[in-house]
Design a protein around this nucleic acid. Structure first.
Length: 521
DNA sequence: GTTGCCGGGAA
DNA sequence: TTCCCGGCAAC
């Protein structure tokens, strides 16, 4: 639709090469003044429509040329020097219009000189465009036509796919982790470009962005396989300019090409910034091992801690089977209120810690990694055998609770300083009236967890919640809807306690019909 | 029907 | 961000 319109718009006013009217073979330049669609006669194949371009020649005369004639002129020029690598796909897409203009705008240096001289002549003849305008013109034309982004080799494309996936994962899980934008940009461009460059382009499928797609920053978790509609011509212009090696500047192409790419990339990746985690909230990882309760600020750190201290493994994370993931929990800490308390608990400053692992969510990483051994077997084995370190001193609280709501996350909930209290520790630890060392928010698993949570030191007080958790977690993975909805609380709620008449005494969440934060289950 | 609360909209 | 409410699901 609009891509077709863009193509047409780009043709008008474009400088093209046409066969010499004298027939001596030397192509001349002209400016496309009009385009007419005509039906081919019987001599042409399939009676397809073709375009007749009215070209204003250097001498001021108007002549009509067919696509082939103009394109042939370009081929003649381009053949004088090697095409830039970025153009090889472009010139093979079979689209006459784009073909033609690309060739003109992306000629080698020698051709550039020739075109310069010719451009001067044209400027004297008719329009008052200067030589620099000629350069601008090339930019304008090329940025609004079908220029597939074929700037990378196949191997690079494959690598970039991987890189793009990794970066998207990082972005979706931790907005603080930012990868080199240019690399991502190219990678995505390359991967999506494959579709476009796989076969001949058609005006409808070959958008003016050359198969370049973008995704909205607000949906940084969105799957790149479901791209958003292509950007407008002006939006993707920066991405096209770099492939031209232009040197001029002007009203329509003022930016330096290299800067354009940088800006365009940063533009894409700057937008998720507002979604950064609030400064006052920090995600910490608490060791659930008996008599430990160590809190670290990175999953890698807590995993290392568990692996080395509790599991007695000295090897690196490479030989980890993921068992550590069961011995720590992710907690969101309101650093405004707990920073002091945490400073004594956490020996490592969060700002000095290495970046989190590729999948900062331990549960997510477990679920996404089929190579990890299923946790239930471990737990059962340890339970039956009773000889492994796990069974001897497994933490008493093998659960992960997750809250999505900010008001829940900031709700002051006390947790025991250590999880060694195996008798009813959970039941008391979740009572908000208890004195708390620091406020945390427990987090329930955001995704299905197929492992049954079994602990040798199972506490009765936590049995209810645990049973719910187990029931949920052992459900089929597809039952995400059941997970998404918090299991109905069994305990007293503000409505029950205070009644409708004392609604003002309810907790805020209850008043807002949210999950009660005062009487948590 | 009541209750808890998720998702989403309005201010 | 706060506040509110429709609507769903568990009870």
């Amino acid at each position: 639709m609009h891509t077709r319109r863009l193509v047409k718009r780009s043709i008008l006013g474009s400088r093209v090469y046409a066969p010499s009217p004298t027939g001596n073979g030397a192509p001349v330049t002209g400016v496309v003044q009009a385009v007419k669609q005509k039906n081919r006669d019987v001599s042409s194949a399939a009676g397809a429509r073709f375009s007749v371009y009215t070209v204003l020649m250097q001498d001021g005369s108007l002549k009509e040329f067919s696509e082939e004639e103009i394109a042939a002129g370009i081929n003649h020029i381009v053949a004088k020097g090697p095409l830039k690598s970025s153009l090889k796909h472009s010139s093979s897409n079979g689209a006459p219009e784009s073909h033609k203009v690309e060739g003109g705008s992306l000629s080698p240096e020698t051709v550039e000189e020739q075109r310069f001289s010719e451009g001067r002549r044209v400027g004297r003849d008719h329009d008052t465009r200067s030589v620099s305008l000629l350069e601008q013109k090339r930019k304008v034309v090329s940025s609004s036509i079908d220029v597939p982004h074929a700037r990378r080799s196949e191997e690079e494309v494959d690598m970039d796919k991987v890189t793009a996936a990794m970066v998207l994962t990082s972005l979706s899980s931790s907005p603080l982790v930012r990868s080199p934008p240019v690399k991502v940009n190219d990678g995505l461009c390359g991967s999506w470009k494959d579709n476009g460059s796989a076969g001949p382009f058609t005006p409808s499928s070959n958008s003016s962005s050359g198969g370049y797609w973008s995704w909205s920053a607000a949906s940084d978790q969105s799957n790149p396989s479901t791209p958003s509609p292509p950007l407008s011509a002006d939006s993707f212009k920066p991405f096209l300019v770099p492939s031209m090696g232009g040197v001029g500047s002007g009203p329509t192409g003022p930016e330096d090409p290299s800067l354009d790419e940088q800006d365009g990339s940063s533009l894409l990746f700057d937008e998720p910034i507002p979604r950064k985690r609030k400064n006052s909230m920090k995600v910490m990882f608490k060791c659930l091992w008996k008599n430990c309760g160590k809190v670290l600020s990175t999953a890698a750190g807590i995993q290392r801690h568990i692996r080395t201290i509790h599991l007695g493994r000295s090897c690196d994370s490479d030989c980890s089977d993921g068992e550590e993931d069961f011995y720590y929990t992710e907690i969101k800490l309101n650093t405004d209120s707990v920073a002091d308390g945490l400073s004594s608990l956490s020996p490592v400053s969060p700002s000095l810690l290495p970046p989190p692992p590729p999948s900062p969510h331990p549960l997510l990483s477990q679920l996404s990694d089929p190579h990890r051994p299923p946790p239930p077997s471990d737990a059962k084995e340890s339970r039956g055998g009773g000889a492994t370190p796990l069974s001897r001193s497994a933490p008493s609280a093998l659960y992960l609770i997750h809250t999505d709501h900010a008001y829940q996350a900031t709700a002051p909930v006390s947790i025991p300083s250590s999880s060694s209290n195996s008798t009813g520790s959970a039941s008391t630890s979740f009572t908000p009236t208890n004195s708390s060392s620091f406020s945390v928010s427990w987090q329930s698993p955001p995704v299905t967890f197929t492992g049954a949570m079994v602990s040798p030191s199972k506490s009765q007080g936590f049995g209810e919640q645990r049973s719910q958790t187990i029931a949920v977690l052992s459900s089929p993975p597809r039952a995400t809807s059941a997970l998404s909805r918090k299991v109905r609380g069994e305990g007293k709620k503000c409505r029950k306690v205070y009644g409708m008449e004392n609604r003002d005494m309810w907790c805020t969440a209850c008043r807002w019909k949210k999950a009660c934060q005062r009487f948590t289950d």
